[in-house]
């Protein structure tokens, strides 16, 4: 539908200095996120797909200001997040939540589920203990941990991986966030449990569609496809393609997207053995000394002289954005 942009990300960069300089600043940087821009409307969902080292998680952490940006701007519902001081930011935290990859690592092992979720209300609201308990029970029901009374007094280690991820989801949606970021929400879970969590995430998204913007980060474009409408494809900190997930899977434009999609194993031998394969070569370059020009050029089967010189900018091609000279005059 798209009424107004809920999240606006403008030219965000995050550089990490590497090496030690004796005096002054070190000269080398890892450009983990390099000039990323996008907007998400109310009710919109965006995937961020990329391999390890593509900067997808760093981008999420910068948007939430869990990491300080090098430059750029992020607006959530009109508020400039990077201009807020710590106190103001803390007030806004309930409105922007993240679900992490490893639920065991993001739950306090020494606290019971009641405390873990209840703490959200204690920190950010002034409601009393009795009501908090009611709210926690509601939330547990909402994420399918039923009967809730059975889970209130348990510790995280007493739950299975899938149940723990449900607790993390309950905590993230406790205060009706406007922005929900799920970072590899199923990759730490058993295969047979993944489907359940995908279903739950979809359910929650659909229930809150009038008020939420939703980001899912994954290396697996199939997961993104089942959860989001649009996606960014990232390679070494830069966006190489942006568009509807379904369309990118059907007809990837950027050579990296083509390679990524043709590399995904398909659990169907007929499709798997008869499809076209993109020849793969070369190594993923290091981010400390990235190649000049397009970062993908050392592995690209269509490389031209231009690609080695200058980085292609994102341009509109048909229904999407692509940064590749194959599509410019």
């Amino acid at each position: 539908m798209g009424t107004h942009p809920l999240l606006k990300v403008e030219n965000v960069k995050k550089y990490f200095p590497v090496g030690r300089a004796v005096f002054g600043r070190s000269k080398q940087y890892v450009k983990a996120v390099d000039d990323v821009s996008f907007t998400i409307d109310v009710g919109g969902s965006l995937g961020i797909v990329g391999e390890s080292g593509s900067g997808k998680t760093t981008l999420a952490k910068v948007i939430l200001r869990l990491l300080e940006p090098t430059s750029g701007k992020v607006y959530l519902d009109g508020v400039d997040l990077f201009s807020l001081n710590n106190k103001e930011l803390r007030k806004l935290r309930p409105k922007m939540q993240m679900i992490f990859q490893d639920p065991m690592a993001s739950l306090n092992p020494r606290r019971k589920i009641m405390h873990i979720i209840g703490q959200v209300f204690k920190t950010h609201t002034s409601i009393g203990d009795v009501e908090i308990r009611e709210r926690v029970v509601d939330l547990l029901e909402k994420v399918g941990l039923t009967p809730p009374e059975l889970f209130l007094d348990r510790y995280p280690h007493e739950l299975s991986g899938g149940q723990r991820q449900r607790v993390c989801i309950a905590r993230a949606i406790a205060l009706n966030p406007k922005l929900l970021i799920a970072d590899e929400p199923v990759s730490a879970l058993d295969v047979s449990v993944r489907g359940q969590i995908v279903k739950l995430l979809l359910e929650i998204y659909e229930k809150h569609i009038d008020e939420i913007a939703y980001i899912v980060i994954s290396h697996d474009i199939a997961l993104i496809k089942s959860l989001c409408k649009d996606t960014l494809v990232m390679y070494l900190g830069r966006v190489v393609e942006k568009g509807e997930v379904r369309r990118i899977i059907e007809e990837p434009l950027h050579p990296y997207s083509q390679m990524l999609i043709s590399s995904i194993p398909v659990p169907d031998p007929e499709i798997a053995r008869n499809r076209k394969r993109i020849p793969i070569g070369g190594e993923i370059p290091s981010l400390i000394n990235p190649p000049k020009g397009c970062y993908f050029h050392p592995r690209c089967p269509y490389v031209m002289d231009r690609c080695r010189e200058k980085t292609p900018s994102l341009i509109n091609v048909d229904d999407r954005l692509v940064s590749c000279y194959l599509y410019s005059e």
Binding site: V191, S192, V193, R194, G195, Q196, I221
Partner: peptide, 21 residues
């Protein structure tokens, strides 16, 4: 198991999963 994993050729409504652990 074949239904529990989203794939690029499946629509999201086909993703099922197995209850329990």
């Amino acid at each position: 198991l074949l239904k529990a994993v989203p794939t690029v050729h499946k629509s999201s409504s086909e993703v099922g999963g197995i209850k329990g652990n």
